[in-house]
């Protein structure tokens, strides 16, 4: 198994306090905050667009952690696996956002039509 070779190259467990490690901690912290902010946005804001933005912020936070993870190595070449994951994640996230925006647009149009109908009835 190729995966087995990678074991112990980096770890989230405490103990290894290199410069890289400190930088990674920062990435991790920033990423986690972004995820929290994004999720709060989804829950707290009533507006659809803000909710969709919240999802994107969450995603960005996770990608940030991944990028940091890739760089946290003593090898001159960064770990390619997190990069592959970020790329895939971005594609998925773009698709999701597009679908959400299309739906939100439809919902808004429908709401506007309903409001117009109500005004006409009055």
């Amino acid at each position: 198994m190729v995966g087995g070779r990678l074991k112990g190259r980096h770890s989230l467990r405490p103990g290894s306090s290199t410069v890289n490690e400190i930088a990674f901690r920062l990435y991790l912290l920033a990423g986690a905050s972004l995820v929290a902010i994004g999720f709060f946005g989804i829950l707290a804001s009533a507006e659809l667009l803000r909710k969709i933005l919240g999802v994107n912020i969450m995603g960005s936070g996770i990608f940030l952690i991944l990028v940091g993870l890739a760089a946290r190595t003593t090898d001159p070449i960064p770990d390619p696996v997190p990069h592959a994951m970020v790329l895939t994640g971005i594609v998925v996230s773009v698709c999701g956002t597009a679908l959400a925006l299309a739906l939100a647009d439809r919902v808004r149009a429908m709401k506007a039509r309903e409001m117009l109908d109500e005004e006409e009835e009055e």
């Binding site: 990678l6 770890s11 989230l12 999802v55 993870l69 994951m85 959400a100």
Partner: peptide, 25 residues
Amino acid sequence: LLVSLAGSLFYLLGVVLTYGTYSTL
């Protein structure tokens, strides 16, 4: 869709942490 996206992102975050700890998926 929103629930589904938020759910998948939490899942992804867990995946990231797992990979960070054990270097395998």
